[in-house]
Deep mutational scan, measured.
Amino acid sequence: HYVEVNGKKIQATSAEEAEKIAKKFAKIYNATVLDLGNYYKVT
């Protein structure tokens, strides 16, 4: 599981952790979290 933010991949140990990381970055960048199955993308 990982999160992609601005083209950078951030490794996460679980889907739950990946979701938390994605939501945190989405809040910082006022962005949207896309759940793409095996990873989250912040756009």
Score class of each variant (00 low, 15 high):
I21E: 01
A12M: 08
K9T: 09
A15Y: 08
D35K: 15
H1L: 08
K20A: 13
V5G: 00
G37C: 09
D35W: 15
I21W: 09
S14M: 04
V33N: 01
V42M: 04
I21K: 02
E4P: 01
A12P: 01
L34P: 01
T32R: 09
G7N: 05
L34V: 13
H1F: 15
F25K: 00
K23W: 14
H1E: 02
A26S: 06
E19T: 06
V33E: 01
L36S: 04
A18G: 01
E17T: 06
A15E: 05
T13A: 14
K20D: 08
E16L: 11
L36R: 06
A15K: 15
K27S: 11
A26E: 05
K24D: 08
T43F: 13
I28F: 13
V33Y: 10
A31K: 03
Y39T: 07
K20F: 11
A22Y: 04
V5N: 01
V42S: 02
A12V: 09
K20R: 14
A26Q: 07
Y29S: 03
S14T: 10
Y39S: 07
N6A: 08
A26Y: 05
N30I: 04
L34F: 07
N30R: 10
E19Q: 12
T43G: 08
N30A: 08
V5H: 04
V3E: 00
K24A: 14
T13N: 13
L36G: 05
A31L: 14
N30Y: 06
A26P: 00
V3N: 00
G7C: 12
Y39N: 06
G37F: 07
I21C: 11
H1T: 08
A15M: 15
A22H: 01
V5Y: 10
E17V: 08
K9P: 04
A31S: 08
Y29V: 03
S14C: 07
A15D: 05
K24H: 15
A26C: 06
K27L: 14
D35C: 14
N6S: 06
I28M: 14
G7V: 01
V5C: 10
T13K: 14
E4Q: 07
V33F: 06
A26N: 02
K41T: 07
T43P: 04
I10A: 01
K8N: 08
Y39I: 08
Y2Q: 02
E17L: 08
G37H: 05
I21G: 00
E4V: 12
L34I: 14
V5E: 00
Q11R: 14
Y2I: 07
K24E: 11
N38R: 10
T13M: 11
H1R: 07
L34R: 07
Y40K: 04
G7M: 04
S14E: 01
E17S: 08
N6G: 10
Q11Y: 15
V42F: 03
V42Y: 03
T43Q: 11
A18E: 00
Y39R: 04
G7R: 04
T13V: 12
A31M: 14
Y40L: 10
A26W: 07
N6L: 14
N6R: 10
K8H: 13
A26H: 03
L36I: 05
E16D: 09
Y39W: 12
G7H: 05
A18Y: 03
N6C: 15
N38K: 09
T43Y: 13
K8Q: 11
V5I: 13
E4S: 06
E16A: 13
F25N: 00
H1I: 12
E16M: 10
A31R: 04
T13L: 11
D35M: 13
D35I: 14
L36V: 06
T43M: 13
K8M: 13
V33H: 02
L36D: 03
A18W: 04
K27Q: 12
T32Y: 11
Y2G: 03
Q11M: 15
N38P: 07
A22S: 03
F25W: 13
F25H: 01
Q11F: 15
V42H: 03
D35L: 14
Y29G: 04
D35A: 12
E4Y: 10
V42A: 03
S14P: 00
D35H: 15
K8W: 14
K8F: 14
E16G: 08
I28R: 11
L34Y: 08
K9F: 13
A31W: 11
T13D: 12
G37K: 04
G7D: 04
A31Y: 08
H1P: 10
G7K: 04
E17P: 00
I28E: 09
T32K: 10
K41H: 06
A31I: 06
V5M: 07
H1W: 15
Y40S: 02
V3L: 05
G37A: 06
Q11H: 14
Y40W: 14
A12D: 02
N6T: 04
A31E: 02
V42G: 02
N38I: 10
K8L: 13
A12Y: 08
V33I: 12
L34T: 08
F25R: 00
T32Q: 13
G7I: 02
N6Q: 08
I28A: 09
E17G: 05
G7P: 00
Y39M: 07
K23N: 11
E4F: 10
E17C: 13
L36K: 07
A31H: 07
Y2C: 09
E16P: 06
V33P: 03
K24C: 15
A31N: 02
G37I: 07
E19S: 10
H1Y: 15
A18T: 00
V3A: 05
N38M: 11
K23A: 10
T43C: 14
A18M: 06
I21D: 00
Q11W: 15
I10L: 08
N6M: 14
E17I: 08
I21P: 00
A26D: 00
K20E: 11
V42T: 01
A12N: 01
I10T: 02
K8V: 13
V3G: 00
N38L: 10
N30L: 07
Y40M: 05
A18D: 00
A31G: 14
G7E: 03
V33R: 01
K27A: 13
S14F: 03
A22R: 02
I21Y: 05
E17D: 10
K20S: 11
A22V: 04
Y2R: 02
